[in-house]
Design a binder for these strands. Sequence first.
RNA 1: UGAGCAGGUCACCUUAUCGCUCCUUUCGAGGGGAGGAAAGUCCGGACACCAUAGUGCAGCAUAGCGGGUAACGCCCGUCCGUCGCAAGACGCGGACAAGUGCAACAGAAAGCAAGUACAGUUAGGCUGUAGUGAAAUCAGGUAAACUCUAUGCGGUGCAACGCCAUGUAAACCAGUGUUUGAGGGCUGCACGCCCGAGUUGGAGGGUAGGCGGAUUGAAUUUUUGGGCAACCAAAAGUCUAGAUAAAUGAUGAGGCUCGACAGAAUCCGGCUUAUGACCUGCUUUUUUU
RNA 2: GGCCACGUAGCUCAGCUGAAUAGAGCACUGGAUUUCGGCUCCAGCGGUCGGGGGUUUGAAUCCCUCCGUGGUCA
Length: 128
Amino acid sequence: MAFSIPKNEKLKSKKQIERLFVDGKSISNYPLKLIYQKVDSLGENDSKVAFIVPKKNFGGAVHRNRIKRLLREGYRLNKHLIFNNIEGKFTFAIIYIGKDMPNYQMIKENIQGLFNKFIKKTTHEKME
RNA sequence: UGAGCAGGUCACCUUAUCGCUCCUUUCGAGGGGAGGAAAGUCCGGACACCAUAGUGCAGCAUAGCGGGUAACGCCCGUCCGUCGCAAGACGCGGACAAGUGCAACAGAAAGCAAGUACAGUUAGGCUGUAGUGAAAUCAGGUAAACUCUAUGCGGUGCAACGCCAUGUAAACCAGUGUUUGAGGGCUGCACGCCCGAGUUGGAGGGUAGGCGGAUUGAAUUUUUGGGCAACCAAAAGUCUAGAUAAAUGAUGAGGCUCGACAGAAUCCGGCUUAUGACCUGCUUUUUUU
RNA sequence: GGCCACGUAGCUCAGCUGAAUAGAGCACUGGAUUUCGGCUCCAGCGGUCGGGGGUUUGAAUCCCUCCGUGGUCA
């Protein structure tokens, strides 16, 4: 699997985002929070992901952009953890809840931790 | 060197790998990729639709004089005023000799008037001074008070606007109307112009995807000429982000002064605000030599 | 991205045709009433008028500029 995020892996549809926030489940690993939902792949070929930084915590566009870029980078380099271990399509939203500026090292470790939690939880749900 | 004034420049750089976005492509790859403020949305335009934007009133804006500009509330020059020892900075800087209003406290009196004390003079009266106040018969003060004068301004904004796709309901109830013209568009009103068989309200249903607009422009660099200057003209050269849940990041290596404020969304010209470092010129006096 | 409003006591609002002490209700404190508490009555406390600059003799009010909050437009 390539370490890339092409356009069709980004969550864009307003409807899908709304559905995700209403019906999705969540895991948090401070300062990150993952909202996810399994989707029935009707025409959709890929899992989709969105990165969110609330304006409430970071007023300036520069800092918000910076965090989103770090999140995107973390997802790009670590998504193999999920897709090598789990079957099915999902929509994700990764939210930065913290109020302090992170660096890449922190983001990387947090994303890996978050993905491990997610894998554990979903495999557990499957067994049940 | 201290204190201060004015103006200008740059905005970490180089490289490799992995990613993002746009363009080109011989499908191997190659090339471009945030700012001086991209910000605030405070002005002025371009552009689009509504009459090729029309008339009157209302409304709003500007305000010494001259020039620049597509235009401006911007810029340049200059006069005057205020501040500063100075270099310089700042100025909503027309009219109260058209009318109306307002003026706390103080004061006799802040305009349909009234008139204190003292001095001059024979007296009436007149003149001067004192006293209150920001302002006192002075053509009084006040227009960032109404107003008047001059000049300018039609409205709405790219979520404008054009097109394609998808979907439902030309359904139901009530009012009103069809050439004797309802209603709508063009502004707040009136006129005028245009469209015109529907339209307004109630309750309810559906869509909310994509393409264009969109980046070559009052653009910019150099040289020459004109002008005190802002700026203008000519010649030669350059192509410099274009996304749409929305692109610039990560890692390694090297270097330095160890990097502030901060992220394009239709596009330009300004203003204002945030902000690091460096350079140039000038003023001034003291400290030092 | 565009357009439009609003910031006054701890809270909800007046005052914004410039001048007099910035008022009202709730809340808070003290007192009266009551066996005690509530209700009621009396008194008090509490304000950079969002910040800064300007006009004016004088600004919450007029003008400019920043900051914050909210609404609206396919």
